[in-house]
């Protein structure tokens, strides 16, 4: 442990830790030792441990996206969906079968050739409720929130494309004072 840290040993251990490396040499030697130990431990991680970690990662990423959406061109809902399916299944067709849709429909949704409909998202909600039950708190509504956050963001970002066309079909017949 860090012997350089000069705080009163009788203090509450939680009041503070100064854990900064004192030198590049210390950083390097600690990093190497830690990495060697971790690599050994990683070899003993079970498939179940890995799956749990991947699903926790997905949950945290989805929650972060809802909190602070990224304003870019990426299809976040579809990326999250792919990560979810690929973490659990070795074959996507099996997932399609489990939620009672055709593999073609799933492929079209994942490849952004078809919009996921309401029923599809509801099925994912039910599926993820079952999957996350023994892993962590996950609100199935998160799928909807990601989907609609992205929808809203895309609609607002693409105003220049759709607005001029629709402006001609919207008028105000009542005079407002």
């Amino acid at each position: 442990m860090n012997k350089h840290n000069k705080t009163n040993p009788t203090e509450d251990p939680e009041f503070g830790v100064d854990s900064r490396y004192r030198s590049e040499k210390e950083r390097k030697s600690e990093s190497i030792a830690l990495m060697e130990a971790r690599l050994k431990r990683m070899k003993n991680m079970s498939k179940d441990d890995i799956l749990r970690a991947k699903l926790m990662q997905l949950k945290l990423r989805m929650e972060e996206f809802i909190k602070e959406p990224d304003y870019d061109d990426r299809k976040h809902f579809l990326t999250f969906l792919e990560s979810y399916i690929d973490a659990i299944y070795s074959k996507r067709n099996q997932f399609a079968s489990d939620i009672d849709i055709t593999p073609v429909m799933l492929s079209q949704i994942i490849n952004n050739h078809r919009e996921p409909n309401d029923e599809f998202i509801k099925k994912i909600m039910i599926h993820s409720d079952k999957v996350f039950a023994n892993i962590c708190d996950f609100n199935g509504m998160t799928w909807y929130l990601v989907y609609f956050h992205e929808k809203l963001r895309t609609t607002m970002m693409e105003q220049e494309k759709w607005r001029p066309k629709l402006e001609n079909h919207v008028k105000l017949s009542e005079t407002l004072e």
Partner: peptide
């Protein structure tokens, strides 16, 4: 975990 998934690690160096 958000950044590194199953490889994630948190470290600190408290006094002994």
């Amino acid at each position: 975990v958000q950044d590194y998934g199953e490889l994630a690690c948190v470290s600190l160096m408290p006094k002994s």
